[in-house]
Amino acid sequence: MTDLFADIRDDQPACEELAEGAVLLRNFFAAEQPDVIAALRTIVKAAPFRHLVTPGGHTMSVAMTNCGRVGWVSDSSGYRYDPVDPDSGKPWPEMPAPFRDLAARAAVQAGFDAFMPDACLINRYKPGAKLSLHQDKDELDLRAPIVSVSLGLPATFLFGGLTRSAPQKRYRLTHGDVVVWGGPARLAYHGVAPLPDGEHPVMGGQRINLTFRKTQ
């Protein structure tokens, strides 16, 4: 079986610069993981994971849900933030304090002060699921960074430039890693390669990604 991470170094520094305005914080929140995971389970019980359909009719391989003031949704009418969960007709679950505190602290570590996210997109990757290269540009306030938290199985994170054709670098993300990008890197293209099979001792056979954003 091919080692998907054969050319990705394991001896990376605890804080690694990916580009101007973008950093990878390795094993950033190990001590806080039980609170974060407990909060995650409460959110998923209230707003279960679902596979969204893109405006072009493609069903996403990544399942997702949301918490916070608004959630990110996709359907035949387009991509958007909405305060109501379309599956339940109710507001999305509130963003729990462990989530908000983790996002704010990671942003400060990356050089972005006073980050107050109002949305957290929660993506679930099962083996084979992937996320194509894209920009996060549905937010009205592009001055605030994106804070992306990894839980569960290792994944290959692709991080490129401001055009889809710009060269990309690959980074191995593991349980507890956080990537923060903003400033000149705010609209960088990024994605996730297909998730390999595996079993994580805490999260099982999946990867969960928490993506914190300030939408307004």
Rank of each mutant, 00 (worst) to 15 (best):
G68S: 04
G68M: 05
G68P: 02
R69G: 01
R69A: 13
R69M: 09
V70H: 06
V70P: 01
V70N: 08
G71R: 02
G71S: 10
G71I: 08
G71Q: 05
W72N: 10
W72D: 06
V73Q: 11
V73R: 12
V73G: 02
V73N: 12
S74A: 15
D75K: 07
D75V: 05
S76F: 07
S76Y: 01
S77Y: 04
S77M: 11
S77N: 10
G78R: 09
G78C: 08
G78M: 07
Y79H: 11
R80M: 07
R80S: 10
R80E: 06
Y81N: 07
Y81M: 09
D82S: 12
D82A: 10
D82E: 13
D82M: 05
P83K: 00
V84D: 03
V84P: 02
D85C: 12
D85S: 09
D85N: 14
D85A: 06
P86S: 10
P86Q: 11
P86E: 06
D87G: 14
D87L: 15
S88R: 06
S88A: 13
G89D: 01
G89K: 00
G89H: 00
G89F: 00
G89N: 00
K90Q: 15
P91H: 03
P91G: 04
P91Y: 01
W92F: 09
P93L: 05
E94K: 14
E94F: 03
E94N: 13
E94W: 00
M95H: 04
P96G: 13
A97K: 14
A97Q: 13
P98C: 12
F99H: 04
F99L: 06
D101R: 15
D101H: 15
R105L: 11
R105P: 05
R105E: 15
A106P: 03
A106N: 07
A107S: 13
A107N: 08
A107R: 05
A107E: 09
V108N: 09
V108C: 10
V108I: 11
Q109Y: 00
Q109H: 08
A110L: 01
G111A: 08
F112L: 02
F112M: 08
F112R: 04
D113R: 15
D113F: 11
M116Y: 14
M116I: 15
M116R: 15
P117M: 11
P117L: 08
P117I: 10
P117K: 10
D118Y: 03
A119M: 10
A119D: 06
A119C: 15
A119S: 15
C120E: 02
C120K: 02
C120D: 03
C120Q: 02
C120I: 07
L121P: 05
I122M: 03
N123H: 09
N123S: 11
N123G: 13
R124C: 13
R124Y: 03
R124G: 06
Y125S: 12
Y125N: 11
K126F: 11
K126C: 11
P127R: 08
P127N: 04
P127M: 06
G128R: 04
G128M: 08
G128P: 03
G128T: 09
G128N: 06
A129H: 02
A129Q: 06
K130T: 13
K130Y: 12
L131A: 01
L131F: 05
L131E: 01
